[in-house]
């Protein structure tokens, strides 16, 4: 059995690295990158959560048929 808490922590770590590199890539100055990071991180996490929710709904609706 995979521990859901550990799974969530690993997802947050992966999100942190992906968003941080994305911000470094899109923002030229470090200050702008730091400012943009929290919002983008939350957007990424909530977007992934929404996507997971949709996938779960699809799984429960269609996979059982």
């Amino acid at each position: 059995m995979i521990d859901p808490i550990r799974h969530l922590l690993l997802f947050l770590v992966a999100s942190l690295v992906i968003v941080a590199l994305g911000v470094c890539f899109s923002e030229r100055s470090d200050r702008a990158a730091l400012r943009a990071f929290p919002r983008r991180f939350l957007t990424f996490v909530f977007g992934c959560a929404l996507f997971s929710g949709i996938m779960l709904i699809c799984e429960h609706t269609f996979a059982k048929v």
């Binding site: 550990r6 992966a14 690295v17 992906i18 590199l21 470094c24 890539f25």
Partner: peptide, 28 residues
């Protein structure tokens, strides 16, 4: 290894993200 898939993905994604870092360095 219960988290081997995560481990493989993390290593691979880290390398791919380095491409962004390279482009950033070049563009600067």
């Amino acid at each position: 290894l219960p988290y081997v898939e995560a481990g493989l993905g993390f290593g691979c994604v880290a390398g791919l993200l380095n491409i962004l870092a390279m482009i950033d360095a070049y563009a600067f």
